[in-house]
């Protein structure tokens, strides 16, 4: 009976996959909310936009108009390291690694400019194949006003609520001191941070995941649930208004729905289970035991 049920379940899974017009985007399950959580410029994933893709991710500018995205890779020839990818009719652009076997982080920017305003949205796309570390990629200035993470979370890690992470704010490549950095999150939090003399702001990710939202991530892509955040800075200089944003995702605090007490209990239980092994034994014949 159980076997038959399992077989039926497997067949149903295959059937559902066969009838589906297209596989749902990996990001759709995580980012089920509407886009109205912030007015700042964003670059958001569309179809196949989950983190850790190998082939390509589709990113679209939101809250600004851009005909193309600038894609900066950490590796490859000079032509490969900076590419422009046109935004298609669906409002998204396909961002791929510089070569099929090269991955790691890629910096992506959308820019809108007129006589009085420069608006920049930036994010990173991660491709799970090995590639050059993004240290130099993050150091190079590319726009007038920039928000750059000091350090990006690695493949299996995330920015997480209750954690503090450093971000650098630069203007024309130089650190911008006393600059206000504003934070909006998908979960509705708002924050405000100030850069120090080195242009560094320490951003505390708010503890704002709700229990209902936490179960969202256990769907198609199996990862922890995530919410988006955007950091934005505004500056008036040389008769222009600069607005720059960096958006990415963050995850719940690792301590949520975890019990250290239960973990310690089972650890001690295991230790107790091994105690009989510590009883002394009489020597056995091949002479391996030396104490009687």
């Amino acid at each position: 009976m159980k076997t038959a049920l399992l077989t039926l379940a497997a067949l149903a899974a295959f059937e559902a996959a066969a009838q589906a017009p297209a596989a749902p985007p990996a990001a759709a399950g995580r980012y089920a909310k509407s886009q109205d959580w912030t007015a700042y410029p964003l670059l958001l994933p569309a179809l196949g936009g989950g983190r850790g893709e190998r082939l390509a991710v589709r990113l679209g500018p939101r809250n600004l108009h851009a005909a193309a995205l600038d894609v900066f890779a950490a590796d490859g020839s000079p032509e490969q390291r900076h590419r422009q990818v046109p935004v298609g009719e669906d409002g998204n652009a396909a961002v791929a690694p510089v070569a099929p076997a090269k991955g790691n982080y890629t910096w992506v920017v959308a820019r809108e400019e007129d006589a009085t305003h420069v608006t920049v949205a930036s994010t990173v796309a991660y491709f799970s194949n090995p590639g050059k570390a993004p240290t130099a990629l993050l150091r190079e200035p590319r726009h007038e006003l920039e928000i750059v993470p000091e350090r990006l979370p690695r493949e299996h890690a995330n920015y997480r609520e209750s954690e503090k992470w450093g971000f650098l704010v630069r203007f024309n490549g130089a650190p911008l001191a006393n600059q206000v950095l504003k934070l909006d999150t998908d979960n509705g939090s708002r924050g405000r941070f100030l850069t120090d003399a080195e242009g560094r702001a320490v951003v505390l990710f708010p503890r704002d995941f709700r229990p209902a939202a936490e179960s969202r991530g256990h769907g198609h892509d199996h990862g922890p649930p995530r919410a988006r955040f955007v950091l934005a800075a505004e500056l008036d200089a040389a008769d222009k208004h600069y607005l720059t944003a960096f958006n990415y995702s963050y995850a719940p605090d690792a301590d949520r729905d975890r019990s250290l007490a239960w973990g310690a209990f089972f650890g001690v239980l295991g230790m107790a289970g091994a105690l009989p092994l510590l009883r002394r034994r009489k020597p056995f014949k091949d002479g391996g035991q030396i104490d009687a």
């Binding site: 089972f266 650890g267 295991g270 107790a272």
Partner: peptide
């Protein structure tokens, strides 16, 4: 929870068992 409990118990077990 069950897998984690097995892992924790296994870890505790081997820490003591490794003495002998």
């Amino acid at each position: 929870f069950a897998l984690g409990a097995i892992g924790d118990a296994l870890f505790g077990f081997l820490l003591v068992a490794a003495l002998a």
